[in-house]
Design a protein around this nucleic acid. Sequence first.
DNA 1: GCTTAATTTATATAACTAATTACAATCCGG
DNA 2: CCGGATTGTAATTAGTTATATAAATTAAGC
Lengths: 221, 221
Amino acid sequence: MKSEKISEAVVRRLPVYLRYLNDLNKREVSTVSSQELGLKLDLNPAQIRKDLAYFGDFGRKGIGYDVSYLIEKIRHILNLDQQINAVLVGAGNLGQALSNYNLYLRENIKIVAVFDENPTKVGSRISTLTVQPMDEISDTIKSRNIRIGIITVPDVEAQNVADRLIAAGIEAILNFAPTILKAPANIRIHAADFTTDLLSLAYYLDNGKDGSADDGAQEDK
Amino acid sequence: MKSEKISEAVVRRLPVYLRYLNDLNKREVSTVSSQELGLKLDLNPAQIRKDLAYFGDFGRKGIGYDVSYLIEKIRHILNLDQQINAVLVGAGNLGQALSNYNLYLRENIKIVAVFDENPTKVGSRISTLTVQPMDEISDTIKSRNIRIGIITVPDVEAQNVADRLIAAGIEAILNFAPTILKAPANIRIHAADFTTDLLSLAYYLDNGKDGSADDGAQEDK
DNA sequence: GCTTAATTTATATAACTAATTACAATCCGG
DNA sequence: CCGGATTGTAATTAGTTATATAAATTAAGC
C-alpha cells in the first residue's frame, strides 16, 4: 500500500469496477483476472492492476482477484460500507427520474429527501418521498445527516441552491444544471450536465471535412 | 491554425465556452477576454487561449475575443451550424426528462424521434413527439437523417439497442445506461451514467480517516 | 516429490498527454 | 507613439497510461 495522492481518473474508474464485480458476484463467479476486467470494461489490464494497487495488494499472483473480497475493498474505499444520505433539489422531470433510479441503486447512496421551490409541487409524492418546501432544507440536511446534494433545478437557480446546500453543511454536490458552480474548495462538485456531453459528441460527427472521408466498414458486433 | 490532433479534453470544454458566450451575447456583451472566461468557468485563462488557438487565431491581442464571432467559430467546430438530428430510445422517466429538455436547447441538436419496446408506451406523446415501436427504428433513422442516438433503456437492453442503432447507420451514441457498450471504432460513444458520478463523489466525503490511516497491514511469512 | 510451464499480480520504467507558466508580439486609447 | 491590456505559443511541469519484468501460484509430467 502506498500513500500517494489518488488521481481523479482512478477514482472515476472504481465505480465501474464495482459495477461489473457486482455483476460477477450475482452470477456466482468467485475469481476474476485484470485481463478479463480489461476486456469487459475496455481498459488496459495493467491500468486496472495499478489502480487497485494504490489501495492495497488485493490480488493473488497466478490467480487473480477474489470477487467478493474486491467488492468489499472497493466499497470501503468509496465510503460505501455505510449508508450515505443524499438530498435532491428540483422535482422536475429529471429529478423524478433520478428519484426513481434510487430504488435500483444497489449501493449505499440513498436519496432521502426531495425539495422544490414550486408550491404546487410541494406535498406531492415522488417515488417513496414527499416533496418538501425549500425553507425546510437546512433543518432536514442537519437532522437527517445528509452529505450529498443533487441539483436538478434550472440553471439560473442552481448557484442559489448550491449556496443553501453548502450553508446547511453538505459535503459534495452532483450538479445537473448547465452552470459552473462556485463553492469553497472543501466542497466537492461534479458536473453531470448532459448537454455538454451531447454537444461535444457532435464534434466527432464526420462531415467529410477531413482525411477520414468515408470508412464504411460497418458491422454488427 | 495547426493540424495537430485535438484532444478529448479540449473538445469537452468547447460546449462550456459556447454556453457562457451565448450568455454574454444575450446580455449584449460584445468582447470577452480569456481571463474573464477563466474566472467564470473555473479554468486557467492560458488553457482557454490554447484550446481556441488549436482551431485558429480568433482573438485580438490587447482586446480579447469578439463574442459573436467566437460563437460562430465554435458552433462551426462542433458541427452545430447545421441541424443535427438525434433519436432517443427508452421512453421512461429519464427519456421523458431529456425529451423535454429538447425545447430548451438553443443549439442545433434536436431529438426528432422517440422509441420504446413497451407496447403500452408506443403511441403516447412525449413533449411534441409520438413514441414509436422499435421495429421502425432503422427506417426512421435512415429516412430522417438521424446521426446521434441517445440510449435511456435499462442496462440489460442497452447493448442490443446500440447494435440496432449502429446497424441503422448512426454515427454517435450518448449512453445513459450503466454499461460499457461495445461498438466499432468509427462509432463515437459517450458514457453519461450518473451512478458512476454519484459513487465516485462518495470517495471524497471526509470520514476523518484522512491520511488514509487504514488497516492494510499485510503479514509476511 | 521435484521440475517445468502457464498464469497473473505488482511495480519500475518509459512514453505519452495535458495543464501551467512565462513571455514576446501585438493592439488600442489617449 | 507610449503604456496598459491581452493574445498566441514556447518551455516547463504535472498527470496519466502503457510497457516490461520479477515474483508468486497452481497444475501437470514424470
